[in-house]
Design a binder for these strands. Structure first.
Lengths: 135, 135
DNA sequence: TGATATACGACTATTTTAGTCCTATTTAAT
DNA sequence: ATTAAATAGGACTAAAATAGTCGTATATCA
């Protein structure tokens, strides 16, 4: 219930690590995983997603790894969440127009619109917090 | 991921129903369930919890049912969430002081404090929205 | 006394989340 | 060339949280 997923937590942690360790070298998934005592593979996947979304840049091979692709104050927590979470929404019916099939109580439910307003406010909390602010 | 539970959705819907149908009679769980096409028993449980938390009042027996215990503008969405959800927190480590056992990466994690700030802001979104505002 | 309601604990099913495993590709160093 | 260490990514499994059901007790009105 209104909980951050581990994926998001790891993404925040990894992004934070990259922001703090940008001294010319590439940070590896292994390095980050060991630092925080997280599964190496999970961090790896999260980093891959951050790369796909242009938040990080990657380099393959032996001396490879990741660096941030933007300055920490140009990356919001919202950017990271959106990159990592496909289903970031207060309710399922807010992803696409709900149908009788996807939501059995659309007819009676008069709660969707007010919740959309709340969704926006929560979005703004993350939009207004940059990575820099959590360093 | 940052999703409202069905319990909370049903609680919002039920509270809203009670607010709109306060014309002297008691609304039953069945009535609400049929109106929204939700499981009767789930609504019943949610209503029981609202009662326990003094958001609603109940009356047993044949003509029994529920009414709101306060005015809609005196009930916040936060009140309802807190009543219904035991585990409303962004991360598990925000419920009680985390230990090595409950969180394997406390040592390295420097993300908890900033998240606590975000938690407060999200709380405020719900605190600042009254039931009246979603009628 | 029967019908209809709340009250509530125990249980089951389903879905989501978390995590693992395996294989391919890239690249630096030897 | 070959090896070692890294990213890349799909398929799968395990665990936990959520959603929902069942059964039974109690209250109250007619």
């Amino acid at each position: 219930m209104l909980k951050l997923s581990k994926k998001t937590e790891y993404a925040f942690m990894a992004a934070r690590y990259l922001a703090l360790n940008n001294s010319g070298h590439y940070s590896t998934a292994k390095e980050i995983a060991e630092n925080y005592d997280i599964s190496h593979q999970l961090v790896a996947k999260v980093l891959q997603v951050l790369k796909k979304n242009n938040i990080a840049a990657s380099f393959q091979g032996v001396k490879g790894g990741y660096v941030l692709n933007k300055k920490p104050d140009e990356i919001t927590l919202y950017d990271i969440i959106i990159a990592v979470e496909e289903k970031y929404k207060l309710t399922n019916c807010m992803h696409d127009e709900p149908t009788e099939e996807s939501c059995s109580h659309i007819e009676g439910c008069r709660i969707r619109d007010p919740l959309a307003g709340i969704q926006k406010k929560i979005d703004n909390v993350f939009i207004n917090t940059s990575l820099k602010q959590i360093l």
